[in-house]
């Protein structure tokens, strides 16, 4: 994707327009460029490096609508010092942004066929831009199925949007949780158990998968079992990304760098080293 950034290593200042707690340990920041700077377009699946001055920099996927790049939306989970501090940002606070980086989801490859979106946990965040893009041109796709698995009903991300999407009949939305207590009336079980009965034609389907690596591994196997071709399965990998442009080598994954060659990979291109404990 063409961007206007002159130096990919120089952060641009953004300010917090809105901060929202999504679940107990996830939050969303909506950011806008300060000093009237122009927004940088992005594609679904790309990520930015977010820099908290004096604290550190972390790679975080973009979870907003690619048709509205003037508002940069990031949803993440509190897992370390930077994200813990990031959660405390308030409206008007500033941070640095580098990016967008990485390969996007090949949404257009699914034109004319079914699209299966499999998300696990906070893996729904990098896939939400796909859903926005699909809904903006819904007529170009066959069936569009979202299979979303998470830990418990309390951990469901973007709950209101999931309900809207389900009610709109534009998407087939299936949510499952690993365990449930109380009034939950939905599915219980791992997300892979949704695949055998999901309404799509495996011979004419593109699948995009994002979540913890072990979840993606079993999801890919289940999709293959259902009959989806290897070259029609895409996964978003995760490694320790630092520079974002394939120079530092921190995110090396086999012969590739996740920040530059990924994070979205075609399954058959990484299958040989996907799941290898040495990598």
């Amino acid at each position: 994707m063409t961007t206007e950034r002159a130096d990919p290593m120089a952060p641009r200042p953004y300010a917090v327009e809105r901060a929202r707690q999504e679940t107990q340990d996830t939050f969303t920041l909506e950011l806008y460029p300060v000093n009237g700077a122009r927004a940088v377009p992005f594609a679904p699946g790309q990520f930015n490096m977010l820099y908290l001055f004096g604290v550190g920099e972390v790679p975080i996927s973009i979870s907003g609508d690619p048709a509205q790049p003037q508002t940069l939306v990031h949803t993440t989970r509190v897992v370390g010092t930077v994200t813990r501090t990031m959660r405390q940002l308030r409206v008007g606070d500033t941070l640095g942004v580098r990016g967008p980086f990485g390969n996007p989801w090949p949404v257009e490859e699914a034109f004319g066929s079914d699209l299966v979106i499999v998300a696990g946990g906070i893996g729904l965040a990098p896939l939400r831009p796909v859903l926005y893009r699909v809904l903006a041109q819904r007529e170009k796709f066959g069936k569009v199925v979202l299979l979303y698995g998470t830990r418990s009903p309390e951990d469901i991300l973007f709950r209101r949007e999931l309900e809207q999407w389900r009610a709109s009949f534009e998407l087939d939305v299936h949510v499952t949780v690993d365990r449930a207590v109380g009034r939950w009336r939905g599915n219980v079980g791992v997300v892979t158990t949704l695949i055998p009965r999901a309404p799509f034609d495996p011979l004419s389907t593109l699948a995009v998968v994002c979540g913890p690596e072990v979840m993606m591994r079993f999801t890919a196997l289940e999709l293959l079992k259902r009959g989806v071709a290897r070259e029609h399965i895409y996964l978003s990998m995760e490694r320790n990304m630092k520079c974002g442009i394939g120079l530092c080598g921190h995110c090396q994954f086999g012969p590739t760098f996740v920040c530059k060659d990924g994070p979205v990979f075609r399954y058959d291109r990484i299958e040989a080293f996907f799941g290898k404990r040495e990598l």
């Binding site: 340990d25 996927s61 989970r77 897992v79 696990g120 946990g121 965040a125 979540g211 079993f218 995760e238």
Partner: peptide
């Protein structure tokens, strides 16, 4: 066998907190 496999995945608690910083995911 299918239920056992699913149960093993549930036991892994894959959506639980990771050990280190990750890119917008668990």
């Amino acid at each position: 066998q299918e239920r056992l496999q699913a149960t093993r995945l549930q036991l892994l608690d894959v959506y639980g907190a990771p050990a280190k910083q990750a890119r917008g995911r668990s």
